[in-house]
Design a protein around this nucleic acid. Structure first.
Lengths: 271, 271
DNA sequence: CTGAGAATAGAATAAACATTCCATTGAGAC
DNA sequence: GTCTCAATGGAATGTTTATTCTATTCTCAG
């Protein structure tokens, strides 16, 4: 017997399970729900059916195909997800802002909001294939070099910490003493460069020289194009929301740590 | 005339506006809504009224006091807020996870989710008064010293960047060459220390010695208690969610940049 | 071409719901 | 002490919404 999905994740899985061999109208329901799962929590069965282009009764039957007793039972799953994902965040942010337009609390509310937005955008916009390629390219490297100047430096520094903790050879190009660490990049190595517009000249030069030599390069940046286009350069764009002239870089750090841990997992898992 | 609040922020403001001189039951409604605004989107009047300990009709009257024609109109405001704050994030995360349990995409989903959760917790749990005190203490300092080892180092590095960009004197204790930078902390300076359990001995010692000398210290840490309790130490706890053995530090970076920008604003605004 | 079966849409029904009305209570004024 | 008016609770009402039932259409096998 097909048990009713108790969470949004289970729901999505169940949706794919049944998606093959479905009559036309049922398939319309499945497609629409897959693309508009977020609307279930607040819509009526009539609205949803209209959106999917089917009769309300068709949507009802589809709910039962998924294992629920009816629409209401299915909706409860999504309502639970919404209320946990929206505890009292919005009102809390509002009350922080209310402490005064220029108060630290209001500023924190801005940064938290920007960070949350950036993380959501990251989840929505990331190209999973490029991410997979980046992990594969880095997992094959003997040593990983980390470059990032000024505001990008903390990202590289955290990558250095993560790789050290996992016992993976990594070198942070920190520019101490203005030493030319670029010369230490050898065949078989790889580079993770973090840079934001306006791109730092040194970082761009480093990316370019590695690209010319065929060294794999992964670039974390804020523009879809990235600073350098080349076959061996994989660009992972991160749209980071600004608060005034500053950014919290929440999404960039998130992507960076993902990259590091995924490479670590690939190394230990793959041999 | 009192127009109906069109957003959650306006709603909160209106709530405070009318909160004085309200009959007993109306006051109960106001108090309950202020504390449970997040429930409005999904609850019925009956549920809400029961929660507030009043009759459903009393809740109806209160909606009209706020300027709405009835409960449904008020609820629409909250529903709009929910649906904008929950675009298709949950389903997107689910689809990233579905690319395979150990895939980079699934890992990214975990970190994004953890980051979002941490930011929400930060907004909910931060003590606005302590934050205000911290900004005031730092704004009065001639030079701000920044300490943080290992995984806390990126936070300090980003603070150093932010203060530099705002033209505020700041010194990053980066431990290059194992120089004893502690000796450069003078009367009239302040310290921002970032440290996570298990606390780094050097950072704890630095905090302690500053505290003993009466130097203002602001500590960003993951435990409510913090590494050192003392009159001149202001602890700002940040609960950061783990993914396996790693954290993205989204919330900590967020709090750090807030601190920096707030101090910059206080300096330029107050003198 | 015809019959059987599923699939679908539309109408009917029943439940839940917001909303309104009215009787009762409580507080303050004269 | 009583009269008045605001405040309140509970029942009544009309609307919305999920759900079910049934007639019709469509599809495929024989």
């Amino acid at each position: 017997m097909t048990a009713k999905p108790q969470s949004v994740e289970e729901f999505q899985a169940r949706l794919r399970e049944v998606s093959d061999g479905l009559p036309k109208r049922m398939r319309q329901c499945a497609d629409y729900l897959a693309a508009n799962a977020d609307r279930v929590a607040l819509s009526t069965v009539a609205e949803l059916a209209a959106g999917a282009g089917v009769a309300p009764s068709a949507m009802m039957r589809f709910c039962q195909i998924l294992g629920y007793s009816g629409y209401s039972e299915m909706q409860q799953v999504f309502r639970a997800a919404v209320s946990s994902g929206f505890p009292d965040y919005a009102s809390r942010i509002a009350s922080l802002r209310d402490r005064g337009a220029d108060s630290p609390s209001a500023l924190l509310a801005e940064f938290v909001d920007a960070g949350r937005g950036s993380l959501e955008t990251l989840a929505n916009k990331v190209d999973a294939r490029v991410l997979d390629q980046a992990v594969a390219a880095l997992a094959g490297a003997r040593m990983i070099h980390l470059a990032g100047m000024r505001r990008a430096f903390p990202v590289s520094a955290y990558l250095a910490y993560a790789f050290e903790k996992m016992g993976h050879p990594a070198m942070l190009h920190d520019g101490v003493g203005a030493l030319q660490q670029a010369a230490s990049i050898r065949e078989g190595d790889a580079l993770i460069a973090t840079t934001f517009t306006p791109y730092s000249g040194e970082t761009v030069d480093l990316i370019q020289s590695c690209a010319d030599r065929g060294i794999p390069v992964v670039v974390l940046t804020d523009s879809p194009l990235g600073p350098v286009q080349s076959g061996s350069v994989l660009t992972l764009p991160v749209a980071e929301a600004d608060v005034g002239a500053f950014r919290a870089l929440s999404a960039t750090h998130c992507l960076a740590i993902t990259l590091a841990v995924a490479v670590g997992a690939a190394k230990s898992g793959g041999g």
